[in-house]
Design a protein around this nucleic acid. Sequence first.
DNA 1: TTATCATCTGAGCAACTGTTCACATACAAA
DNA 2: TTTGTATGTGAACAGTTGCTCAGATGATAA
Lengths: 116, 116
Amino acid sequence: MPIDRCQCRIVHEQQVEKARKSALPPAEIDKLAQFFKACADPTRLRILLALHQEEMCVCDLAAFLGVSESAVSHQLRLLRQMALVANRREGPVLYYRLTDAHVSQLVLVALDHIRE
Amino acid sequence: MPIDRCQCRIVHEQQVEKARKSALPPAEIDKLAQFFKACADPTRLRILLALHQEEMCVCDLAAFLGVSESAVSHQLRLLRQMALVANRREGPVLYYRLTDAHVSQLVLVALDHIRE
DNA sequence: TTATCATCTGAGCAACTGTTCACATACAAA
DNA sequence: TTTGTATGTGAACAGTTGCTCAGATGATAA
């Protein structure tokens, strides 16, 4: 049985078909990519790691990160849209926290990898 | 004891200091960000998920993804540099595989999050 | 109301990213 | 060697990203 070498140069038709069948739907792939993208920036990572310890307000984070409060606000909006952080108002101050433990798990696994 | 409201607008000096002390070193933060960035693209995610099933060559992946072999090669180089994939030569064909199970773990945790 | 603080938002811009194209390289068979 | 196949690489381009700046919004106090 000859290996398929058609004009589109597919060497292993069966494996390609198998990969197609077990693939996640495009919408889920995109969501996954967006989720990882939210973790794929040093500033956002530092925000997430800081909030893993305890909740903080915007100007605390700005002082900690060494960037403008506007920049922090922009990043927090993105993290909010991805449901990674939530906030609570106390007077004029908004306190941000992580919404769940998934991010911490994620970072631990990633640390395992890069420290090898 | 008055709350510290100095010119740099730090509301909670102690929490900021605490975050600073427990922060990861910048080099590690950058590595983490690069690692997540490698997972933060739909094409690369699909490559990683496909290779999680079994090893595939470049033109298999190109056929599966519906993009040029050049594009696949570029993405594979990036994944190789991040030590996420490795290859093995068999004649003219290079077969790519995942280097370890960290990526699979990562994707599972991420899926848990986005499916909630 | 006015004034102030904390935060948010839109515009604009430099830097980065993912793709295609064209060509280069590496291996195998004749 | 020559030819063909599989993959790699650099240039170029559109699209995206993260920042700063200026101004807007919301809450509080006088």
